[in-house]
Design a binder for these strands. Structure first.
Lengths: 251, 251
DNA sequence: AAGTGGTCTAGACCACTGC
DNA sequence: CAGTGGTCTAGACCACTTA
């Protein structure tokens, strides 16, 4: 005691100094941080202490490590809007994909797609007011932008509506699933969306090529046709580095 | 070579076995995981290897460490709805706080509050179509549920509207800021909200008492009065363990 | 007082990157 | 091939919790 202040852990002190350099712009987006060896010498610490400091920054999402190369500054700069207007009738009604509604440059591309028909899993069953004996068409896909995977999505449509229609095919045709539902007289008129955030599972981390310190945003959406009949349920997992969601509503 | 498969890192193997026990329900919410010493003996590994396995689980949000006690399973179970309907006119129009619209039990409580008037920071200035020379009333607060902090929020209201009114006081009276804006003839009629997720800063982590592996959800909301005049801008930082956002909209 | 996780040291070997 | 981060070992001391 008597040392005049709080004892600061060495790795915290190192991390904080690097954090300041990032915050003030001395180090910015692609810049290389001092490596383990450099920090060991600069601060006279052991390897694991230097590593801990760098790990702190990575877990905060401020840095990414590239094996064999170095640790680099990563500033948060999400790219793509994911808004309610993407579901407006004008968009899919006109035979364009909902994604065309997005503002920025390159549109997401479906990168992998599987379509199956199977008994409804518990959550989709509940949201679609089905029993788990009822069957649903399941469309799982991954979206990428410029070769970077950004979203995993799984849509569930009751088999009674979708079986034998283009909805159960790989290619649903212009306007996508919603346009086909409209053709069948089940045009969605209302949506509810639930949104939360969490850390990815190792599998999601892999499929979306996420780096340490990158959470995902989970969106669960239910589409209702006239008479409040639920006709589609989707679960989406978005890379938080790729998306900002936007919503607009009246008082 | 010749070992017949992919080399699996020891800490990954340990983490995966624990993950499976969590996924299958052998270990659930408050359960204590095997500690560092136990894992060292069970797998014949060094302390740092056992630590790495436990750290992996913590960074995924599957476990929390309690110093001097152990590492415990944490399953994701958000508590509180944060939806668009909280902003409907019926809610604040009737002199109740927007939070009353939330469904579940104990309402969030303001736990610390500062009100100042100052030149508009860059982002609020842009959203309120002000210059950074213009002044704004800044209301910063922290909300807690049952003593657990869950949200940080900062609201910005143009000083030309708010100065000398209850909006610049600590206690804004029934219905809050929106009701007072309505009294002044600037009732919000439309809102836009932008939502994204990221890892917390060390300061946020502290103020919201977040454990490792808990992201935050950031919400930036702008309220518009008649004639699309922006009258309030709020930045909110929500603990992802406490909130599910919900939205409802028409095609 | 015993056990726990948190910090730290001082080594080692590996796979990968980039010149 | 030199340098990097990733994994791993085998110790040590500390602050904290629990009983």
């Amino acid at each position: 005691m008597g040392d005049g202040g709080v004892r600061q852990r060495k790795h915290e002190r190192i991390a904080e100094e690097l954090r300041v350099q990032i915050r003030t712009g001395q180090l910015t987006d692609g810049d290389r941080l001092p490596g383990e060896n450099a920090l060991m010498e600069m601060y006279g610490v052991a390897r694991m202490t230097a590593r801990q400091a760098l790990a702190d920054l990575q877990n905060e999402g401020l840095a990414v490590a590239r094996k064999g190369s170095g640790v680099y500054v990563r500033t948060f700069r999400p790219v793509r809007r994911f808004g309610a207007q993407r579901l407006s009738k004008e968009v899919w009604g006109a035979g364009r994909s909902v994604w065309d509604a997005d503002t920025s440059s390159a549109p997401p591309v479906v990168d992998s797609l599987t379509v199956t028909t199977e008994p409804a899993p518990e959550v989709p069953a509940r949201m679609l007011t089905l029993s788990t004996d009822d069957r649903v068409v399941v469309r799982s896909r991954r979206y990428s932008i410029n070769g970077e995977p950004v979203q995993l999505a799984t849509a569930y449509i009751p088999a009674v509506l979708a079986e034998g229609t283009p909805i159960a095919e790989e290619n649903t045709g212009p306007g996508g699933v919603f346009a086909r539902l409209a053709d069948l007289g089940h045009a969605p008129v209302r949506f509810t969306e639930e949104v939360y955030a969490r850390m990815p599972t190792p599998q999601e981390s892999d499929e979306l090529r996420l780096t340490t310190g990158t959470p995902v945003i989970c969106v669960a959406r239910t589409a209702f046709a006239a008479g409040d009949r639920p006709v589609e349920f989707s679960e989406m997992t978005l890379s938080s580095t790729a998306y900002v969601l936007s919503y607009d509503f009246q008082a």
